[in-house]
């Protein structure tokens, strides 16, 4: 309502000449808004940063959008340069923002996008979202397929899916495992346990869903600070731990859990594609 209010007081408060000048500036703001977003999207495509933002299924969409935005911006720029008559006549269409504000907001956000690179979601985000050992019920997976993978070849996500399909920790005791993920320090776990985790993306980083398995260390977990990426080899065991899968809160009840007893731990750099799908 306030938007509408200001729009109309704004557009009525100037002489026709001033209005035309504003209209001209607004047209160029449009051009730059489209241009900046076109370049930003293409930049994400070509630098691989898109992996940190959305599921690879939609890369082509972003690429196409970047190209179309560039074309639109170019055409609009040509229109601004050539046909002055076009300018300023059509600005009376229903507007929600004061003239120019929409484009300015778009430009500012795009510039911020250039300045600040997207980061890999941290263990803090994982803790806030609640690391689960089981996938949400809605994300059904073909169950038979995952149990057929050899234990030592399963990724962390495969393990979680397998466990989700058949949630009996004792069934996996003694199996060898080699998993990759980042460190999360769960407050409710003893000092010699950490959680090895991955984020799973179904659409974009907004729905990134952390999954993880507790790891039993020979040392104190302080050796491996949160967000460190590790490759852990070891053997699956089952233990009774107070680990509430859903809420991560203090009232968690002790339950039988699948735990990875680490034999060798290797610190690795953050992978280029930190998310699993």
């Amino acid at each position: 309502m306030i938007f509408l209010f200001s729009v109309f007081s704004f557009s009525n408060g100037f002489s026709p000449k001033q209005r035309k000048k504003f209209a001209k500036i607004n047209q160029w703001l449009d051009v730059f808004a489209l241009l900046s977003w076109g370049i930003l999207l293409l930049k994400y495509c070509f630098t691989g940063q898109l992996k940190l933002l959305i599921h690879p299924n939609f890369f082509w969409l972003v690429l196409a959008t970047g190209i179309i935005l560039l074309i639109l911006s170019l055409t609009k720029g040509i229109a601004c340069l050539t046909s002055n008559a076009e300018v300023g006549d059509k600005n009376d269409h229903i507007v929600l923002f004061p003239p120019g504000l929409g484009s300015i907001v778009l430009i500012v956000v795009a510039l911020a996008g250039f300045a600040i690179a997207p980061n890999v979601l941290s263990s803090q985000a994982a803790l806030q979202r609640g690391v689960a050992e089981n996938l949400p019920l809605t994300r059904s997976e073909p169950q038979a397929f995952y149990t057929s993978i050899k234990p030592e070849e399963r990724s962390l996500l495969d393990w979680v899916r397998t466990l989700n399909a058949y949630p009996e920790p004792d069934a996996y005791a003694g199996q060898q495992a080699k998993v990759k993920g980042f460190v999360v320090h769960l407050p409710q776990l003893p000092e010699d346990y950490l959680l090895i985790s991955r984020f799973v993306i179904t659409c974009c980083a907004v729905d990134a869903y952390p999954v993880g398995i507790p790891v039993k260390l020979a040392t104190n977990r302080a050796v491996y600070p949160p967000d460190t990426w590790l490759t852990i080899e070891g053997e699956m065991i089952s233990e009774t731990l107070s680990l509430n899968r859903e809420m991560m809160n203090e009232t968690a009840q002790a339950e039988r859990q699948l735990v990875l007893a680490a034999k060798s731990i290797e610190v690795i750099p953050t992978p280029a594609d930190p998310y699993d799908y």
Binding site: W37, L41, Y44, L50, L52, L53, I54, F58, L61, V62, A64, T65, V109, A112, G113, I116, P118, N119, L121, S122, Q124, A125, C203, C204, A205, V206
Partner: peptide, 17 residues
């Protein structure tokens, strides 16, 4: 804050197409 900004960008990049 950085996380928030990343999520914000992620929403925009997914939605703009």
């Amino acid at each position: 804050l950085h996380n928030a900004f990343t999520l914000f960008l992620s929403l925009l990049v997914e939605a703009i197409p």
